[in-house]
Write a protein that binds this DNA or RNA. Sequence first.
DNA 1: TCAAAACATAAGCACACACTTATGTGTTTG
DNA 2: CAAACACATAAGTGTGTGCTTATGTTTTGA
Lengths: 104, 104
Amino acid sequence: MIENEIFKALADPTRRAIFEKLAAGRMNASALRHGMAISQPAISQHLSVLRKARLVREERQGRVVNYEVDPEGLSLIAGWLERYRAYWPTRVAALSELLKDMEP
Amino acid sequence: MIENEIFKALADPTRRAIFEKLAAGRMNASALRHGMAISQPAISQHLSVLRKARLVREERQGRVVNYEVDPEGLSLIAGWLERYRAYWPTRVAALSELLKDMEP
DNA sequence: TCAAAACATAAGCACACACTTATGTGTTTG
DNA sequence: CAAACACATAAGTGTGTGCTTATGTTTTGA
């Protein structure tokens, strides 16, 4: 049940902050730490959680590990959200209708 | 920071199950409990969390309290998701572009 | 090859969280 | 009015979570 891991991962504000930083561009763990009053292991643990939730993916380059947003997790949330499109505000719901007519 | 409450609320599988039931139609707390191996106070507490997260709203009718999906919370998540539309898969991203041209 | 750099993992701790049982608060009905 | 209903709140408990410091692992560079 990956949904659970995604929502749990996003339920922590520090993790969302990390995710937002990565959304601005790929970055390594040390760079992510800049400006955050948190230890290096904490960042590493958060990244591990985000990675298991498919919200982030890593790419090792030498002794540096670069992280970037993984679209997989985001699209899984989008999929979950779409199950409740009947309750979305009209402007969002209208979009959802368009979606159904697009590429299968 | 309502975002935090929303994600925290959805991070629990029991709460998501309750939400899914409500998505099928408005219901009172007792009806929600049917088929769930959980105590009455637990349901009540979960509903409180969902309500504070704007995912659910209540309407008292006599001694019965009916619950239903509140679009507010869903649209807040949709808004959060949209911030990262650059990373969505193409078919979702295309939709997001359309959204921007619709009603302001 | 040896030290430093960049992370990951281990272990421990304080707090949050999801549950329980017990009790309280309104509301309806006989 | 009193008993029954429908639900909320209180209080307590085990488990999970986020953090820390300490230590491990791999890679680079002098």
